[in-house]
C-alpha cells in the first residue's frame, strides 16, 4: 500500500503556496513586466510626458559602442569571477576535508567572508589597494609597480574581479565541502586499493561525484557575477576608469539612475534578463548532460 499524504481539501494546497506566489508575482513578475513596458517608452525623468516609441530604445542600446564594450567587460568579468571563486573554493574544500585536527576552526574561518556584504567587501579591498591610502597599494608602489587603478583599466578590472571572487569563495566552499563529505569513503578506499594515485582518485572518482554540486554552483556563480557584484563595482571603481569596469548591471543602474534615461535603462535590463535566461537554459541543456547525479 502506498503511503502518501493526501489533502482532501482542494483549496488548502493553493492556500499554502499562495504566499510564495504572491511574493513571486509582486517582486519578480511585476517589476519584470514594468521593465518591459518602460523599455518601449520615451519618458522624461519626472514622468510628465511619455511617448510610445516601439523598439527605438533597443536600437539605441544595441547601436551604442559602449554597450558592446560593456558586454565584453561583463563576459571577461563573469568568467574570471566564476572560474577563480570555484577553483579556489574547490581547492580549499579538498584541503579542509583532509585536515583532521582543527578542521572546525578552518571551516569556520573560511566561511566568514560570506557574511560580508558586497559593498563592504569592495570597501575592504579599496582600503587595501588604494594607491594613496591603501597599505598594499602603497607597498606595490614602493616596490616600483606603477599601481594606480584609478587610471589603469586592466588593474581596476583585476581588483574588482579579485574582490568579487573572494567574496563568493566561502559560499562555494560550504557547498563543495558538504558535497565532499557526502561521498562514500568506501568508493575512495576501493580506488586506492586498486592502486589509483590521489590525483587519479580525485579526477575519476571524487570530481564526477561532485559534479551536481559543481554544476549548481556554476549557475549560481554566473548569476552572482552578473548581478550581485554591483556593490563591489559601485564601491571600488564606479565603472571607471574610462569604462573599464562597467558591467551590464552597472550600466543599467548608471543609465537609469544617474543619466535618467529610463527607457534606455529598461531596454538594457530586458536584454540582460534575456541573456541570463539564455545562459541558464544553455547550462541546463548542455552542461547538465555531463553531470552525474
Amino acid at each position: 500500500m502506498e503511503r502518501r499524504a493526501i489533502f482532501g481539501n482542494r483549496v488548502l494546497p493553493y492556500a499554502l503556496v499562495a504566499p510564495q506566489l504572491v511574493i513571486t508575482v509582486l517582486f519578480f513578475f511585476w517589476p519584470a513586466f514594468q521593465a518591459v513596458h518602460q523599455s518601449v517608452l520615451l519618458e522624461d525623468p519626472f514622468g510628465l510626458s511619455s511617448r510610445f516609441v516601439w523598439f527605438e530604445n533597443f536600437e539605441a542600446v544595441l547601436g551604442d559602442e559602449f554597450y558592446l564594450n560593456s558586454l565584453g567587460v561583463t563576459a571577461l568579468f563573469s568568467l574570471s569571477v566564476a572560474a577563480l571563486s570555484l577553483g579556489i573554493a574547490l581547492l580549499l574544500a579538498v584541503q579542509a576535508n583532509n585536515v583532521i585536527r582543527g578542521s572546525h576552526t578552518y571551516r569556520t574561518l573560511l566561511i566568514w567572508p560570506y557574511a560580508v556584504a558586497p559593498a563592504v567587501a569592495g570597501v575592504l579591498w579599496l582600503f587595501m589597494f588604494h594607491p594613496s591610502i591603501g597599505l598594499l597599494g602603497q607597498g606595490l608602489r614602493a616596490l616600483g609597480v606603477d599601481w594606480n587603478y584609478l587610471l589603469d583599466g586592466p588593474q581596476a578590472l583585476l581588483l574588482v574581479i579579485l574582490a568579487s571572487a573572494w567574496k563568493q569563495i566561502s559560499y562555494n566552499f560550504i557547498f563543495f565541502l558538504a558535497g565532499l563529505q557526502s561521498i562514500p569513503k568506501s568508493l575512495i578506499e576501493a580506488a586506492a586499493i586498486d592502486g589509483a594515485s590521489p590525483r587519479h582518485r580525485f579526477w575519476t572518482v571524487v570530481f564526477p561525484l561532485l559534479s551536481p554540486t559543481a554544476f549548481f554552483l556554476l549557475v549560481v556563480n554566473i548569476v552572482y557575477a552578473f548581478f550581485d557584484t554591483f556593490g563591489v563595482i559601485h564601491a571600488v571603481t564606479g565603472g571607471g576608469p574610462g569604462k573599464a569596469t562597467e558591467i551590464l548591471v552597472y550600466k543599467v543602474y548608471y543609465d537609469g539612475m544617474i543619466a535618467l534615461d529610463l527607457g534606455g535603462s529598461a531596454a538594457q535590463s530586458v536584454i540582460l534578463m534575456a541573456i541570463v535566461i539564455g545562459l541558464t537554459v544553455v547550462q541546463f541543456r548542455y552542461v547538465e548532460k555531463k553531470v552525474h547525479y
Binding site: 587610471l151 571607471g240 576608469p241 574610462g242 544617474i258 543619466a259 535618467l260
Partner: peptide, 21 residues
C-alpha cells in the same frame, strides 16, 4: 541637460588620455 552624465563622459575621455590611450 544631463550634466551629471556629461561630466562622467568628460572624465572618462580625460582618464583615457591620462592613461596614454
Amino acid at each position: 541637460g544631463n550634466m551629471v552624465q556629461l561630466r562622467d563622459v568628460f572624465a572618462e575621455e580625460i582618464e583615457n588620455a591620462l592613461a596614454g590611450k
